[in-house]
């Protein structure tokens, strides 16, 4: 069953084509990664899918709802963990989670239950009363994802979730992302090849706003004729240059 369908989705900024007629289908519960060099169009694609910016042409359907015609219905089923750590710095971890519950319109009981559930699920129990500004980068990312998950989204956008984290924090976050597989449709953007390879069911590689290839990591390596995923990525992206 499909969770997301993109139909010739395009975005132009004056003379620049950020996303060029992108068509793609992502299955429910799938962990899909978008890879590409800077300016490839990954973030613009995420912004369009999360209704932050309108496409110039084309359309996309999330859970059958159009981003152009039914943005409120789309917003009801998604959550975004932005590239930067988007938390309220002066609030405690608990208060940050409560803020998102309030923004989602949860009742008092549901708020209490969800906060307990998500803090346990993401291992935040030990830092619940700490202010977000005092947390390390890894904990902030974890909180950021918890704030996205607390709304029980069907589709979760993770934009560079492990950027700047140390090896241990990244490994812990990978475990967390893996645990979401099958339950939530996850769209991940990353610059780390090993991250995409380790976590994704399928990977789409973008360049200059276009989707160059979309397949499993193994299939992409086979297509590129190499055993290394990083090498496969480089070959595919450079092939377009020629």
């Amino acid at each position: 069953m499909e969770a997301i369908r993109l139909e010739a989705l395009s975005k132009k900024y004056k003379d620049t084509v950020a996303v060029d007629s992108l068509s793609l289908t992502i299955r429910k519960g799938e962990l899909f990664s978008l890879l590409g060099v800077n300016g490839a169009g990954k973030s613009t694609t995420i912004k369009m899918l999360s209704c932050l910016t309108k496409p110039t042409s084309g359309n996309a359907f999330l859970g059958g709802k159009s981003i152009c015609r039914e943005p409120a219905d789309v917003k009801a089923q998604i959550a975004v963990s932005p590239q930067e750590t988007a938390v309220a710095p002066g609030l405690s971890v608990r208060e940050n989670l409560a803020l998102m519950c309030g923004v989602q319109g949860f009742s008092r009981d549901r708020k209490r239950t969800k906060i307990a559930e998500i803090s346990h699920q993401l291992g935040l129990d030990s830092v619940m009363e700490k202010r977000a500004e005092t947390l390390s980068g890894g904990w902030k990312r974890r909180l950021s994802i918890a704030m996205a998950l607390i709304s029980e989204p069907q589709i979760l956008f993770l934009d560079e979730p492990t950027l700047g984290l140390d090896v241990l924090a990244r490994s812990e976050l990978w475990d967390l992302i893996r645990s979401l597989k099958g339950k939530v449709t996850v769209i991940l953007t990353t610059h780390y090849m090993e991250e995409a390879e380790a976590l994704s069911d399928r990977i789409g590689i973008m360049r200059d706003g276009r989707l160059l290839i979309c397949d499993t990591a193994e299939a992409i390596k086979r297509t590129a004729g190499t055993d290394s995923f990083e090498e496969a990525f480089i070959r595919i992206v450079k092939e377009v240059e020629k």
Partner: peptide, 11 residues
């Protein structure tokens, strides 16, 4: 901080 960006994707 992109907190607003996160909140813009809510209702």
């Amino acid at each position: 901080s992109a907190l607003l960006c996160r909140l813009y994707t809510t209702k």
